[in-house]
Each structure stands twice: as C-alpha cells, then as structure tokens.
Design a protein around this nucleic acid. Structure first.
Lengths: 345, 345
DNA sequence: CTGAAAGCGCTAACAA
DNA sequence: TTGTTAGCGCTTTCAG
C-alpha cells in the first residue's frame, strides 16, 4: 500500500494555489485569508498530510532533536531522569533521541559522533563510569551544540551541569547514623574521579569531622558499587578484629548496601541492631526489602526537567556560552528501618 | 563560538574539487582516486566535518529514525526492552526516538502524530493500558510505516507483534503451585482487553482444568495490577470464610503480589507456609525481598531485539505487508521461596 | 493577501 | 576519475 505521502506541493496543485500559500496556512501565518486557510486545512486533513520535519529542519537549520546519553537505562534513577527529560522536552517541542554508553568510554565517544551527525540541537549526558578524560566532548563544544551534564560529571571540569548536593546528602545520612549512637561508621566509596562519589565521600568525612569522630582508613572501602562489591566490602569489614569492626555502614549506592545486608543476614547478624546500614539512590527495592533500607532520593524527575531547562536557556543565549552554570538540587534523605536503633513502637 | 559547521560545499571549494567528488570520497564510493579521497578525508577531519543527516535523509527519503513508544520507562521490563531495542537499532544504523504514553490513550494518539512527522521509518509500540481501540494506528498503516507491537497488543487484532507465551508461563506457574500441594489457587487478573492479562488468565484456567481443579469465580480478582490493588485483593481473599480462602495466589504482576505479601505479613501469616505467592515480570525486587518471589522472566532484551528484527524485515519486503507475522518468545519461570512448601534444607 | 523563486546540504543520474 | 545538474520538501524573502 504505502500511499505516497502528500506534500505541500501536492496540496497546492490540487487547490490551485501556490506552495507558499499552503505553507502559510499550515503554519498559522497571519497573512492569509480565513477562507483559503480553511480550504487548505481541510484538504490537508483529508489527505492525511504530515509535515516533513527533515525538510523543515534542513531549511530552518533546526532538527528539534535533543540527544540524551546515559550509562544505562536500568535502575530507578536513570529511568526517572529519562521520564523527566522526555516530559519536559516534549512540552518544549523536542524529540528525544536516546543512547546508552553501557558504562564504556568507547561507546560514549561513538555515541557523541552519532548524536552530532543526527543534528541534535543539544546533548544531555551523564558520564560513563570509565570516563576519565574529556576530549570527545570538546568536539561538541566546537560544533556549538549546547551540552548539559547531569548527575555524573568529571571532577575538576568547568561544565554546565545539574547535580544534586551529594555532599550534603551524605553528611545528613552520616549525621543521622551518629545521632543513632554509632561511632565506627564505615563507607563504601565509589570511583573518585566521578563527582558524585567524591562528594559523597567528602560529606561522609565532613560529618565525622564535625562530630569529632576519627577517620579510619580501614573503614573506607573503595569499589565499583555493585551488589558483589558490597558483599566483598562487608566480608572485609567482618574480618577485622572485633574491636575495630564498624557499627554502621554508609554505602554510596543501594546495591552495595544490599550486598552488605545479605552478608550480615547470612552471618546471623541483625540490621540495624548489630550493624546499621544506609544506601543511596532510593532504588525501588529499598522500600521492599527487610529491613527497609535508609537511602537518598535524588530527585530524578526534577533533574531531568532542570537539565532540559538549562538546555533551552543555552539555546536562547548562545552568545555568553562562556559562562558556565550549575544547578544544584536538594536531595532528600529517607530514614528507614535499616538505620534506626529503636524503631518506633 | 559556535563555528559554522563545515559543509560538503565548503570542503569542495577549499580543495578546488566538485561537491560530488567530496561526497563520493566521504561515502566510500569506489569511483574515486585514492589520492583525492585521502585529501578530502584529511580536510574533513581537520574541519571537524559532520555529515548532515537531515539533508541526506531528505534526499534519500530516509531518516534513519526508529520510533519507540512505551507506556512508561520505569520498571525492569520496559527498561530491559529499551536496552535491547537500542542495542539492535544502533547496530542496524538507526537512531532511537523514544516517547511514553503514560498509560494514556490520549498521549498515545498524540505521540503517533509526533513520531510520524518526525519521519521515523518504523514504530515499535507497547500499548497503554487504557487503549481500547485502534484508530490512531490506522494512520500509521496508511503512511506505509512499518508498525511492530511488542508485549502488549490489543486482543483480536491482526498485527505484527512480538510477545511472550503468557499462557504457557501462567500455566507453568500454576502447575508448579499445584505440584506444591495447593488446591485453592487464586488469581490477580489484569485488564482483559490486553492480550497479556487475558492469556495469563487463560493459562491459569487451563492449568486448573488440566489438573481437575474447579474454577471459583470468587478466587479471581480483576484489577489494574498495582501494589495497592494487590493489597485490596488480598484483603478481600482474607475476608472469605476460612474454608473457602485460597492457599495460593498467582498474580499477573509482581507489584500486586508484593502488595499481597505485605498484607499477609501484617496479618502474621507466613509465606509460603500459610499461603504461597507467585508474580510476573521478574522485577528487580523479587529477588531481594523475603521470601524471594517466584516470578516469570519475560525475556525483555530478546523482545527488544526481535522487535527491531521484525521491523528490519518489514523494511525490506514492504510489498507483502498484508501478511502479518508474530514472534512468540518462551518465558522462563523462576521458582523462588515464596511458592516452595519445603525450602531446600 | 498571494505568488515566484532561491536555497538549506546532500545524493545520484548523466556527461565529460 | 571527476564535474554538472537537478531536485528531496520545506521556509522565507521579495514582488505584486
């Protein structure tokens, strides 16, 4: 079947008017009589006319495409951000083109190329875990394409970004742990070249410092934040002499916290009585496991929304692209059973 | 900054060759001398030339865009499918444009328009829960754009689709429950205009029938499959006279099963001892809650992959678009603690 | 209010 | 092997 799509030219011929008249009618140009507009619109409807965005885009130098690259789409966080982005972008008349880096710099580079020659008008990125340098993003700048990072950005770079206040969130979690009477608080830390893990670690350290607790290097386990890493980390902690063992663990990710919890259960240790636990990201399962896991809501939808807003701003004021901006969202600590010494009666 | 993007014409002028020569060099056309090709490629690199896909697409009547519409992106299932789609599409040289219907027919209609005039070359759809009729998809057919449904399709329609064998999966789950000694097996059923829920219900009924068990209408609770629905359903079952109460529940979704589990725990009832539970979808949390929840792996990645494959097929043999095809994937039942009477020692 | 015409960047005959 | 030319479908001056 595949009926050839009707074009503006087709409609024009059929109505005996010029191409530009049809175009105007269809684009709500004021310079056109109501009569002709009605005729045009009617026929367009009848012929199931669909404007060709490729052509319009080519002509106007716009594509109405917004590129998004995430490390992966699984998990509550990125799915939530994607939802926020999609909603905001659609409202602003943009289509969202999505791609995943699979936590791999190589993929990341390639995707940048791909997005660029799809003529996206902007790119929103959350870095892959294996990204240590920035060269592939220089190209984006050179092309004058607005670039907004969200959540994961490279430490020490000056880029437009929307992030949450990881430091503050970590600080609050650890402070809460201290208030619950814990004194030897351990930390599962992530790759320190990523802002998020660095800041969470700093927040952890700040809280200890402020409350006069010493920092014990042996209580900081740096890893990739998977469930298995959490298992390994907890096993390592349990291997310490009883006196130096932690009485609480603040993990920079929910998955590692879960791994730790599994180890504790296997060992017959009780959470939070024998050891308190807190994670990060408010993954769906944190509410459902037992005990429920204290975690941090990262405002994912809001983050997607803000990233799109920032992109739209940059689109308007292309000129002072020199000035970098940063939006910092306030996270929300969610206290749950895994960290409360005396659960409410 | 925003250096104007170099075009083929720019390169041509700078090299004193014709536009088509440059085009050929860049597209690996054999009809060109190695020397000129080298020169062209070199300059292209230096000028950070990016082909303009809008222009190429306009000319070739192709966009390299594949549209995907899902009800929402949260949850393990759709995220997994999206991953499969993105991977397969990228390999085939397509970009993925994503949009969500938010389980709302209205949105769904609108998104179809949007995708169509973005000139996508195909559309992959999983229906919104509130979709009861098909009109808005007729338009897609009329435009000759390949349309592939996955997972959720409308009952009684003849469309290209890739689904899992929900009937079979449900049958196996219920059979397993029967083998565990359960005799009064209840069912949380979803909206019956959707194939997936209808088939799961049929599978449930088949299993009962095959094993000589009666169907009790009061043991079938039809709802929207949310966590709250599961709570309500379980409460209703617990309200039945002791003698007619179910001893197992097969829920067509993990969330409802979880809701049921929560109610049981509150009531001090033990799973699976007092009542066995099974869900559907293999949501992440099903492995992590206690007891772990028996569920069904829907082969999400594979589904995405197959949907893209089907689309690619349709692209090639546009002619016999009359013949509809269906790919049926085999699901995998995951037996976990929530349904096993005597857990392995 | 309407039409003619140029051109966005690229590809693909057809010539040379 | 290279160049010339004609559009893909649309927007947008500039004339009328």
């Amino acid at each position: 079947m595949a009926a050839k799509r009707a074009s503006i030219a087709d409609l024009a011929k059929e109505l005996n008017v010029s191409i530009s008249t049809v175009s105007r009618a269809l684009n709500n140009d004021p310079n056109i009589s109501v009569a002709t507009r009605t005729r045009v619109v009617a026929l367009a409807q009848e012929r199931h006319y669909q404007p060709n965005r490729l052509a319009a885009g080519l002509r106007k130098g716009r594509s109405n495409l917004l590129g998004v690259m995430v490390p992966h789409i699984e998990g509550a966080f990125f799915a939530g951000v994607m939802h926020g982005i999609e909603t905001a972008a659609t409202k602003a008349g943009f289509h969202v083109m999505i791609c995943q880096s699979n936590e791999d710099v190589h993929h990341e580079k390639q995707n940048i190329e791909t997005l660029l020659n799809a003529q996206v008008e902007g790119i929103l990125v959350s870095l892959s875990r294996t990204t240590h340098d920035f060269k592939h993003f220089e190209k984006v700048r050179k092309h004058g394409v607005p670039l907004v990072f969200f959540d994961r950005i490279l430490e020490g770079t000056d880029v437009n970004a929307v992030v949450i206040d990881d430091h503050q969130a970590a600080y609050q979690v650890v402070q809460h742990l201290i208030e619950q009477g814990h004194r030897r608080i351990a930390h599962f830390a992530g790759p320190q070249h990523l802002n998020i893990y660095k800041n969470r670690r700093q927040g952890y350290l700040s809280a200890l410092y402020t409350h006069g607790l010493p920092v014990e290097e042996e209580l900081i386990f740096t890893c990739d934040m998977t469930l298995d890493d959490g298992v390994a980390g907890m096993q390592q902690f349990l291997g310490l002499p009883a006196a130096t063992r932690p009485d609480a663990v603040f993990s920079a990710s929910d998955f590692s916290a879960l791994g730790a919890m599994q180890v504790l259960k296997e060992q017959g240790l009780r959470v939070p009585l024998d050891l308190a636990l807190a994670g990060f990201s408010n993954e769906l399962f944190t509410s459902y496991i037992e005990p429920s896991l204290t975690s941090v809501d990262q405002r994912c939808e809001q983050m997607g929304q803000s990233a799109v807003d920032m992109f739209l701003d940059m689109l308007e004021v292309r000129t002072d692209a020199r000035r970098t901006r940063r939006i910092v969202l306030q996270p929300k600590v969610l206290i749950r059973d895994s960290s409360v010494r005396h659960p409410a009666a």
